[in-house]
Amino acid sequence: MEQVLARLRAAAEATRLRLLAICAECELTVSEITQIIGQSQPRVSRHLKLLCEAGLLVRFREGTWVFYRTPHSGPGADLVQPVLGLLPQDDETLALDRARLEQVKAEREKIAREYFRANAEDWDRIRALHVDEAVVENALLEAVGDLSGGRILDVGTGTGRILELLGREAEEGVGVDMSREMLAVARARLQRADLSNCLVRQADMYQLPYPGGMFDVVTLHQVLHFAERPDAALAEAARVLAPGGKLVIVDFAQHEHEELREQHAHRRLGFDDASLNEWFRNSSLEPDDVINLPGKPLTVRIWAARPVRDQSGSKETNKPEKAA
Protein backbone atom coordinates (compact mmCIF):
# COMPACT_ATOMS: atom_id res chain seq x y z
CA MET A 1 0.00 0.00 0.00
CA GLU A 2 2.88 2.37 0.75
CA GLN A 3 4.22 1.88 -2.77
CA VAL A 4 0.85 2.73 -4.28
CA LEU A 5 0.59 5.84 -2.11
CA ALA A 6 4.11 6.89 -3.12
CA ARG A 7 3.18 6.60 -6.81
CA LEU A 8 -0.03 8.54 -6.27
CA ARG A 9 1.87 11.31 -4.45
CA ALA A 10 4.40 11.47 -7.31
CA ALA A 11 1.61 11.90 -9.86
CA ALA A 12 -0.41 14.37 -7.76
CA GLU A 13 1.06 17.59 -9.18
CA ALA A 14 0.01 19.57 -12.25
CA THR A 15 3.34 19.61 -14.10
CA ARG A 16 3.96 15.93 -13.42
CA LEU A 17 0.51 15.02 -14.76
CA ARG A 18 1.38 16.97 -17.91
CA LEU A 19 4.67 15.08 -18.18
CA LEU A 20 2.91 11.73 -17.88
CA ALA A 21 0.41 12.75 -20.55
CA ILE A 22 3.01 13.67 -23.17
CA CYS A 23 5.42 10.83 -22.32
CA ALA A 24 2.56 8.36 -22.81
CA GLU A 25 2.42 9.50 -26.45
CA CYS A 26 6.07 8.80 -27.33
CA GLU A 27 9.58 8.81 -25.88
CA LEU A 28 10.98 12.32 -25.46
CA THR A 29 14.29 13.96 -24.57
CA VAL A 30 14.60 16.55 -21.82
CA SER A 31 15.06 19.34 -24.36
CA GLU A 32 11.91 18.24 -26.22
CA ILE A 33 9.98 18.09 -22.95
CA THR A 34 11.07 21.59 -21.91
CA GLN A 35 10.01 22.84 -25.35
CA ILE A 36 6.55 21.33 -24.86
CA ILE A 37 6.02 22.20 -21.19
CA GLY A 38 7.56 25.65 -21.37
CA GLN A 39 9.46 25.36 -18.08
CA SER A 40 13.16 25.51 -17.26
CA GLN A 41 15.30 22.42 -17.71
CA PRO A 42 16.30 22.16 -13.99
CA ARG A 43 12.65 22.25 -12.93
CA VAL A 44 11.60 19.71 -15.56
CA SER A 45 14.53 17.46 -14.63
CA ARG A 46 13.46 17.50 -10.96
CA HIS A 47 9.93 16.42 -11.88
CA LEU A 48 11.26 13.71 -14.18
CA LYS A 49 13.51 12.38 -11.43
CA LEU A 50 10.55 12.07 -9.02
CA LEU A 51 8.43 10.29 -11.60
CA CYS A 52 11.24 7.86 -12.45
CA GLU A 53 11.86 7.09 -8.78
CA ALA A 54 8.17 6.28 -8.40
CA GLY A 55 8.26 3.98 -11.43
CA LEU A 56 5.82 6.15 -13.40
CA LEU A 57 8.43 6.96 -16.07
CA VAL A 58 11.38 5.00 -17.44
CA ARG A 59 14.56 6.65 -18.68
CA PHE A 60 17.22 5.34 -21.05
CA ARG A 61 20.40 6.78 -22.48
CA GLU A 62 21.25 6.96 -26.16
CA GLY A 63 24.73 8.41 -26.58
CA THR A 64 24.61 11.84 -24.93
CA TRP A 65 20.80 11.95 -25.07
CA VAL A 66 18.39 10.67 -22.42
CA PHE A 67 14.84 9.67 -23.34
CA TYR A 68 11.77 9.34 -21.11
CA ARG A 69 8.49 7.51 -21.58
CA THR A 70 5.76 5.89 -19.51
CA PRO A 71 6.33 2.17 -18.81
CA HIS A 72 4.57 -0.49 -20.87
CA SER A 73 4.16 -2.93 -18.00
CA GLY A 74 4.53 -3.33 -14.26
CA PRO A 75 3.00 -1.51 -11.27
CA GLY A 76 3.86 1.92 -12.68
CA ALA A 77 2.03 1.21 -15.93
CA ASP A 78 -0.96 -0.16 -14.01
CA LEU A 79 -1.32 3.21 -12.26
CA VAL A 80 -0.43 5.57 -15.12
CA GLN A 81 -3.15 4.45 -17.52
CA PRO A 82 -6.12 4.90 -15.13
CA VAL A 83 -4.78 8.28 -13.98
CA LEU A 84 -4.39 9.54 -17.55
CA GLY A 85 -7.90 8.29 -18.30
CA LEU A 86 -9.23 10.74 -15.72
CA LEU A 87 -7.72 13.80 -17.43
CA PRO A 88 -10.24 15.91 -19.39
CA GLN A 89 -9.53 15.94 -23.10
CA ASP A 90 -10.70 19.55 -23.44
CA ASP A 91 -8.31 20.94 -20.83
CA GLU A 92 -6.62 24.03 -22.35
CA THR A 93 -3.17 23.33 -20.89
CA LEU A 94 -3.16 19.71 -22.03
CA ALA A 95 -4.42 20.76 -25.47
CA LEU A 96 -1.53 23.22 -25.80
CA ASP A 97 0.91 20.51 -24.72
CA ARG A 98 -0.48 18.19 -27.39
CA ALA A 99 -0.13 20.91 -30.03
CA ARG A 100 3.51 21.48 -29.07
CA LEU A 101 4.10 17.72 -29.04
CA GLU A 102 2.85 17.60 -32.64
CA GLN A 103 5.43 20.28 -33.49
CA VAL A 104 8.17 18.10 -31.98
CA LYS A 105 6.94 15.11 -33.98
CA ALA A 106 6.89 17.23 -37.15
CA GLU A 107 10.51 18.26 -36.55
CA ARG A 108 11.47 14.60 -36.16
CA GLU A 109 9.75 13.84 -39.46
CA LYS A 110 11.71 16.63 -41.14
CA ILE A 111 15.02 15.26 -39.86
CA ALA A 112 14.05 11.76 -41.03
CA ARG A 113 13.13 13.01 -44.52
CA GLU A 114 16.43 14.88 -44.84
CA TYR A 115 18.37 11.77 -43.83
CA PHE A 116 16.47 9.70 -46.39
CA ARG A 117 17.15 12.26 -49.10
CA ALA A 118 20.88 12.21 -48.33
CA ASN A 119 21.05 8.41 -48.57
CA ALA A 120 18.24 7.53 -50.98
CA GLU A 121 20.52 7.10 -54.00
CA ASP A 122 22.60 4.37 -52.35
CA TRP A 123 19.54 2.53 -51.00
CA ASP A 124 17.75 2.69 -54.36
CA ARG A 125 20.82 1.32 -56.13
CA ILE A 126 20.95 -1.73 -53.85
CA ARG A 127 17.17 -2.33 -53.98
CA ALA A 128 17.37 -2.45 -57.76
CA LEU A 129 19.64 -5.51 -57.52
CA HIS A 130 17.11 -7.84 -55.92
CA VAL A 131 13.45 -8.84 -55.93
CA ASP A 132 10.85 -6.21 -55.00
CA GLU A 133 10.80 -5.45 -51.27
CA ALA A 134 7.06 -6.13 -51.05
CA VAL A 135 7.73 -9.73 -52.11
CA VAL A 136 10.38 -10.05 -49.39
CA GLU A 137 8.05 -8.60 -46.76
CA ASN A 138 5.21 -10.97 -47.66
CA ALA A 139 7.60 -13.91 -47.42
CA LEU A 140 8.88 -12.63 -44.07
CA LEU A 141 5.34 -12.45 -42.70
CA GLU A 142 4.83 -16.05 -43.80
CA ALA A 143 8.08 -17.14 -42.16
CA VAL A 144 7.32 -15.40 -38.86
CA GLY A 145 3.77 -16.72 -38.56
CA ASP A 146 1.29 -15.82 -35.81
CA LEU A 147 2.49 -12.93 -33.65
CA SER A 148 -0.56 -12.54 -31.42
CA GLY A 149 0.55 -11.65 -27.90
CA GLY A 150 4.23 -12.13 -28.74
CA ARG A 151 7.32 -10.04 -28.20
CA ILE A 152 9.48 -9.11 -31.17
CA LEU A 153 13.11 -7.99 -31.28
CA ASP A 154 14.40 -6.55 -34.57
CA VAL A 155 18.21 -6.47 -34.49
CA GLY A 156 19.77 -3.73 -36.63
CA THR A 157 16.34 -2.17 -37.06
CA GLY A 158 17.54 0.65 -39.32
CA THR A 159 14.49 2.60 -40.53
CA GLY A 160 12.14 0.58 -38.32
CA ARG A 161 10.29 -0.88 -41.30
CA ILE A 162 10.31 -4.44 -39.93
CA LEU A 163 8.83 -3.26 -36.63
CA GLU A 164 6.18 -1.38 -38.59
CA LEU A 165 5.46 -4.53 -40.59
CA LEU A 166 5.32 -6.97 -37.68
CA GLY A 167 4.55 -4.81 -34.66
CA ARG A 168 0.84 -4.25 -35.15
CA GLU A 169 -0.04 -7.87 -34.31
CA ALA A 170 2.48 -8.22 -31.48
CA GLU A 171 2.07 -7.34 -27.84
CA GLU A 172 5.41 -5.54 -27.84
CA GLY A 173 8.10 -4.76 -30.40
CA VAL A 174 11.67 -3.58 -29.79
CA GLY A 175 14.19 -2.49 -32.40
CA VAL A 176 17.90 -2.00 -31.69
CA ASP A 177 20.52 -0.22 -33.75
CA MET A 178 23.85 1.51 -33.13
CA SER A 179 23.12 4.48 -35.41
CA ARG A 180 21.41 7.41 -33.71
CA GLU A 181 20.49 8.78 -37.13
CA MET A 182 18.70 5.56 -38.07
CA LEU A 183 16.97 5.43 -34.67
CA ALA A 184 15.61 8.92 -35.31
CA VAL A 185 14.22 7.71 -38.64
CA ALA A 186 12.72 4.62 -36.95
CA ARG A 187 11.06 6.69 -34.22
CA ALA A 188 9.48 8.96 -36.80
CA ARG A 189 8.19 5.92 -38.72
CA LEU A 190 6.71 4.26 -35.62
CA GLN A 191 4.99 7.44 -34.42
CA ARG A 192 3.58 7.96 -37.92
CA ALA A 193 2.20 4.39 -37.83
CA ASP A 194 0.80 4.98 -34.31
CA LEU A 195 2.60 1.92 -32.96
CA SER A 196 2.84 2.86 -29.29
CA ASN A 197 3.59 -0.79 -28.43
CA CYS A 198 6.91 -0.54 -30.31
CA LEU A 199 10.09 1.25 -29.30
CA VAL A 200 13.70 1.51 -30.40
CA ARG A 201 16.94 1.51 -28.42
CA GLN A 202 20.61 2.10 -29.16
CA ALA A 203 22.40 -1.20 -28.60
CA ASP A 204 25.20 -3.40 -29.92
CA MET A 205 24.00 -6.54 -31.69
CA TYR A 206 26.91 -8.45 -30.11
CA GLN A 207 25.83 -7.42 -26.57
CA LEU A 208 22.06 -7.06 -26.45
CA PRO A 209 20.88 -5.41 -23.21
CA TYR A 210 18.18 -8.02 -22.52
CA PRO A 211 18.03 -11.20 -20.45
CA GLY A 212 17.98 -14.62 -22.06
CA GLY A 213 14.71 -16.04 -23.36
CA MET A 214 12.91 -12.69 -23.54
CA PHE A 215 11.56 -12.56 -27.11
CA ASP A 216 9.23 -14.84 -29.05
CA VAL A 217 10.55 -13.67 -32.43
CA VAL A 218 13.97 -12.21 -33.25
CA THR A 219 14.63 -10.85 -36.75
CA LEU A 220 17.81 -9.78 -38.54
CA HIS A 221 16.75 -8.17 -41.79
CA GLN A 222 19.65 -7.39 -44.17
CA VAL A 223 21.99 -7.04 -41.19
CA LEU A 224 24.38 -9.99 -41.14
CA HIS A 225 26.23 -9.00 -44.32
CA PHE A 226 27.43 -5.87 -42.46
CA ALA A 227 28.67 -7.90 -39.47
CA GLU A 228 32.34 -8.53 -38.85
CA ARG A 229 31.34 -11.62 -36.85
CA PRO A 230 27.96 -12.81 -38.17
CA ASP A 231 28.15 -16.06 -36.20
CA ALA A 232 28.55 -14.10 -32.94
CA ALA A 233 25.64 -11.81 -33.82
CA LEU A 234 23.48 -14.84 -34.55
CA ALA A 235 24.50 -16.48 -31.26
CA GLU A 236 23.56 -13.36 -29.31
CA ALA A 237 20.18 -13.22 -31.07
CA ALA A 238 19.64 -16.87 -30.15
CA ARG A 239 20.44 -16.11 -26.50
CA VAL A 240 17.47 -13.75 -26.08
CA LEU A 241 15.09 -16.08 -27.95
CA ALA A 242 12.43 -17.74 -25.81
CA PRO A 243 11.98 -21.53 -25.87
CA GLY A 244 9.50 -22.21 -28.64
CA GLY A 245 10.39 -18.90 -30.29
CA LYS A 246 11.74 -18.30 -33.78
CA LEU A 247 14.83 -16.60 -35.18
CA VAL A 248 14.36 -15.26 -38.72
CA ILE A 249 17.22 -14.00 -40.90
CA VAL A 250 16.70 -12.15 -44.18
CA ASP A 251 19.84 -11.68 -46.25
CA PHE A 252 21.47 -12.30 -49.60
CA ALA A 253 22.45 -15.71 -50.89
CA GLN A 254 26.17 -16.00 -51.59
CA HIS A 255 27.20 -13.82 -54.57
CA GLU A 256 30.27 -12.28 -56.21
CA HIS A 257 29.37 -8.59 -56.42
CA GLU A 258 32.52 -7.07 -54.94
CA GLU A 259 31.24 -3.53 -55.54
CA LEU A 260 28.87 -3.96 -52.59
CA ARG A 261 31.87 -4.54 -50.36
CA GLU A 262 33.80 -1.62 -51.80
CA GLN A 263 31.00 0.92 -52.16
CA HIS A 264 28.48 -0.04 -49.48
CA ALA A 265 30.57 -1.51 -46.63
CA HIS A 266 29.23 -5.06 -46.99
CA ARG A 267 31.55 -7.29 -44.98
CA ARG A 268 30.12 -10.53 -46.40
CA LEU A 269 29.02 -11.23 -49.96
CA GLY A 270 25.94 -13.12 -48.90
CA PHE A 271 25.72 -16.51 -47.16
CA ASP A 272 25.27 -20.13 -48.05
CA ASP A 273 22.93 -22.56 -46.32
CA ALA A 274 25.78 -24.64 -44.89
CA SER A 275 27.25 -21.70 -42.97
CA LEU A 276 23.89 -20.63 -41.55
CA ASN A 277 23.02 -24.17 -40.52
CA GLU A 278 26.35 -24.60 -38.76
CA TRP A 279 25.86 -21.33 -36.85
CA PHE A 280 22.33 -22.41 -35.94
CA ARG A 281 23.58 -25.70 -34.55
CA ASN A 282 26.37 -23.98 -32.60
CA SER A 283 23.69 -21.78 -31.00
CA SER A 284 21.45 -24.76 -30.14
CA LEU A 285 18.94 -23.94 -32.85
CA GLU A 286 17.13 -26.26 -35.26
CA PRO A 287 17.02 -24.94 -38.84
CA ASP A 288 13.62 -24.56 -40.47
CA ASP A 289 12.74 -24.39 -44.17
CA VAL A 290 14.57 -21.81 -46.31
CA ILE A 291 12.58 -19.39 -48.49
CA ASN A 292 14.34 -18.55 -51.75
CA LEU A 293 13.52 -15.30 -53.59
CA PRO A 294 15.56 -15.10 -56.81
CA GLY A 295 16.31 -11.68 -58.27
CA LYS A 296 18.54 -10.05 -60.85
CA PRO A 297 21.34 -10.41 -60.00
CA LEU A 298 20.97 -10.96 -56.22
CA THR A 299 18.89 -13.65 -54.54
CA VAL A 300 17.30 -12.95 -51.17
CA ARG A 301 16.92 -15.86 -48.77
CA ILE A 302 14.98 -16.17 -45.54
CA TRP A 303 16.42 -18.59 -43.02
CA ALA A 304 14.50 -19.54 -39.88
CA ALA A 305 15.39 -21.61 -36.81
CA ARG A 306 13.94 -22.55 -33.44
CA PRO A 307 15.60 -23.46 -30.12
CA VAL A 308 16.37 -27.15 -29.72
CA ARG A 309 13.82 -28.65 -27.37
CA ASP A 310 14.88 -30.33 -24.16
CA GLN A 311 14.46 -34.08 -23.77
CA SER A 312 10.88 -33.69 -22.56
CA GLY A 313 9.99 -31.65 -25.66
CA SER A 314 8.62 -28.90 -23.44
CA LYS A 315 8.31 -25.37 -24.72
CA GLU A 316 7.16 -23.89 -21.41
CA THR A 317 9.09 -20.94 -20.03
CA ASN A 318 8.64 -18.14 -17.53
CA LYS A 319 9.37 -15.04 -19.56
CA PRO A 320 11.19 -12.08 -18.00
CA GLU A 321 9.51 -8.72 -17.55
CA LYS A 322 8.96 -6.70 -20.70
CA ALA A 323 11.63 -4.49 -22.19
CA ALA A 324 11.88 -0.90 -20.96
Rank of each mutant, 00 (worst) to 15 (best):
L86N: 12
L234S: 01
A106M: 01
G212L: 04
A186R: 08
S179A: 03
R229G: 01
D124Y: 13
Q81S: 15
I33S: 13
Q81M: 12
P88G: 01
G245N: 09
A188F: 13
E228D: 05
D231S: 02
E278C: 10
C26Y: 07
N282Y: 07
G85T: 01
I162C: 14
C52A: 13
I291L: 07
L165Y: 04
V155G: 02
G76N: 02
L87Q: 07
E286M: 15
K246G: 02
E121A: 06
R267N: 08
L57W: 09
L101V: 09
D91E: 14
R161G: 08
R18E: 09
D310Y: 11
A6R: 15
D91N: 14
E164L: 10
R18C: 11
I36N: 04
D204A: 05
A237Q: 04
Q263S: 12
E133W: 11
E114G: 09
K110M: 12
E259H: 07
F60W: 12
L56S: 02
E316W: 06
L56W: 08
L153I: 05
A24E: 13
A6W: 09
V185Q: 06
L195Y: 04
D154C: 01
Q81I: 03
K322I: 06
A170R: 02
R267F: 11
T219Y: 03
A188C: 07
P88C: 02
D177K: 03
E107A: 09
Q263A: 11
G212A: 14
E171T: 15
R9Y: 13
Q103A: 11
A54H: 13
A12Q: 11
S45K: 14
W303I: 02
R125W: 10
A10G: 02
S196W: 03
Q202K: 08
V104K: 07
M205I: 11
A242D: 06
A77V: 05
E259A: 05
Q41V: 09
T317E: 02
Y206R: 09
L165N: 08
N277Q: 15
L56Y: 07
G213K: 02
V80C: 12
E142R: 15
P88I: 05
L224G: 00
